[in-house]
């Protein structure tokens, strides 16, 4: 192999020895880059001293005749791998996260707090129309609950407390 090529390849390897730890550091300072040389880390530790606290959404839709139906996340986000569901709900329908992310690309919807854009409302209506043909949804309610799973010597108990609610007007 020509000497120049050998030298270039060695420089490539040497560069990676510097860049790979830097990209790992970048994840701690900012966020994980893509493309990035990582494997799943499973995130933080949800268990502390026998208690597990998890935040999850319960979604329901209310129709014009007053009936209420529970909506499965997998149905609402049909087309996305299940690994994406929790993050997608959190980034787009969790009031806590929406306030953090700010009002990027959002146009204000009258009298809604926090802000859900008209485009997202339109998308929700299309999805719900496909899921409930012939029915007219008027509201969507996403109740974020804190699920605490406590393990004791006597067994395990689970308590659920609502902590935040997002109401979306669909008409």
């Amino acid at each position: 192999m020509p000497t120049t090529r050998v030298r270039r390849i060695k420089v490539l390897f040497a560069s990676l020895f510097v860049l790979l730890p830097l990209q790992l550091g970048a994840k701690y300072v900012g966020s994980e880059p893509w493309p990035g040389v990582f494997l799943p880390d499973f995130g933080s530790v949800p268990r502390m001293n026998g208690e597990f606290v998890i935040r999850k959404p319960d979604i329901s839709v209310i129709f014009d005749d007053g009936r209420r139906a529970s909506v499965e996340i997998a149905q609402l986000l049909e087309g996305l791998p299940s690994s994406h569901h929790a993050t997608t709900m959190r980034f787009n329908f969790d009031p806590k996260m929406i306030r953090i992310l700010g009002d990027k690309n959002r146009d204000a919807q009258a009298s809604s707090d926090p802000i859900i854009s008209a485009n997202v409302v339109r998308w929700l209506k299309e999805r719900l129309a496909a899921m409930y043909p012939g029915q007219v949804p008027v509201h969507m309610e996403i109740v974020w609950v804190s699920l605490m799973h406590r393990i004791t010597d006597d067994g395990a108990t689970t308590t659920v407390n609502p902590v935040d609610t997002l109401k979306i007007e669909l008409q």
Binding site: A26, G30, S31, E32, P33, W34, P35, G36, G79, L80, T88, F91, N92, L101, N105, R106, S117, N119, V120, R122, W123
Partner: peptide, 11 residues
């Protein structure tokens, strides 16, 4: 999916 769902990673 709407563009509001677009939260690209660093890169």
């Amino acid at each position: 999916f709407p563009d509001e769902f677009f939260h690209p990673p660093f890169g």
